[in-house]
Design a protein around this nucleic acid. Sequence first.
DNA 1: CGTAGACTTGACCTGCGTCAACGTGTGTGG
DNA 2: CCACACACGTTGACGCAGGTCAAGTCTACG
Lengths: 254, 254
Amino acid sequence: MSRSDPTNLQPFVDRLLARSVLTPDEIQAILALPVHPVEVRGQTDFVQVNEKTSCACFIASGMVARFGETRDGQRQITAFHIPGDMVDLNSVVRPIAVGGLTTLCNTTILEVPHTAIRALAVRYPAVAEAFWRDTMLDAAILMQWVVNVGKQRAKTRLAHIFCEMAIRLGGDRQILQEYDFPVSQERLAEAAGMTGVHVNRSLKALREEGLVTVKRYSVKIHDWQRLAQTGEFEADYLVADTGTDRRARLLAGD
Amino acid sequence: MSRSDPTNLQPFVDRLLARSVLTPDEIQAILALPVHPVEVRGQTDFVQVNEKTSCACFIASGMVARFGETRDGQRQITAFHIPGDMVDLNSVVRPIAVGGLTTLCNTTILEVPHTAIRALAVRYPAVAEAFWRDTMLDAAILMQWVVNVGKQRAKTRLAHIFCEMAIRLGGDRQILQEYDFPVSQERLAEAAGMTGVHVNRSLKALREEGLVTVKRYSVKIHDWQRLAQTGEFEADYLVADTGTDRRARLLAGD
DNA sequence: CGTAGACTTGACCTGCGTCAACGTGTGTGG
DNA sequence: CCACACACGTTGACGCAGGTCAAGTCTACG
């Protein structure tokens, strides 16, 4: 039951507490959710597009990508999910997967049945609110992703992704200057909406400009300021809701 | 209090009922929400990026776009909102606007205070769930938007947008072959992630191929089949949750 | 030590951007 | 009701970011 126990939901609670206020009772109830641990090898699609799901997936370790597909099978990654994320929490109210899910490396997932989550949300409105808010953060990240893919140049797109992950992996507070990122250039291309070849060239440019070095399993940021500048990265959308007043509880009526 | 009364929320209730089950009590409570009608002229930004909001905006008539901005002021539209939409419902749990909102034509908005919506969500968990589900549909549309902008060609992107709006304006059931769409080519470009000039050429091509005719204030679809084909449009993500089992109530615990 | 995947690089191509000119429709004021 | 203006739509010429194709090279792992 310690925090390092890979089969408990404490990291999820920590995540929620960063943006929502929960009572000890509520926290205990979340930690008491039934979980079913599953080990998934890397590069495995474990949820298909339009599949009906019956549980949410908590990432205990590893990394996961959500993606959509074009008719000819090309993929567009729409989100990266990291340890502590409850992927598919949205599926609780909308059980048809809006995109596929695939592992980027060996990943430990804790499956949590929708039924249990629903029961919890009914009993504790503040928990329901915390869940809803959590899915809204994902939506905010997604909106930024659209802007990034729709209106930016190649280097900017990539830089933005590295900045986003540096903040998220750092727990929204510290900015990690170096982190594991088990994503091939091909996958980066699927995320940034470009081709593998051009990702390669753009990474080379970013490296030669002294901004960031990307290897297959790691990102090392050399100059955060200029990287954020190049990526037109504003952290607001990720961290803007940590203020006290924004964690107001539904129960308080304000 | 009739359905055509432009200051009541009946269309919003209709929208919710398409995907959620609500009791007469719950419906009455929603209809009893306090609203403050506001007339907004076209081409007006009425919510700024990162602005803190204190109410959600129901669109009684008109049309609205959500957008993000790059540093040099270019805009990327991330969603179109139509009459019946509760724009910014997400802001109830996350009051920092994730994008700006601008009117595409003269629009009547009913402002609904967050406080009232929160109070309702606490009192009726099923209403909270319906709200949450509604925001998740927006998120699903947004995910599709990323795929469209990230991985498709110009004609495909535009065709996809016209298909999406045909379904949404038709109430998710009928497919409108002709509808009002008060969007300039410049705006379409901001939505599709391209330039106005190229939108113009692509629209010309779509017209010459007999797929669709787009004028400043209207879209006329000539061949739905081929338009959907060209736009790689699958309506699943918009309508997949109208089945009975997917409208199950939180209260039912399943 | 071999093999399969990922990374790199070069040469060339093209969809779309950019710039610029001109046509057209619509709303306003005289 | 007309005239003007301004915003929007249309079209052509040209450039470039990024795509495509293809040939290596590196590296992890059995």
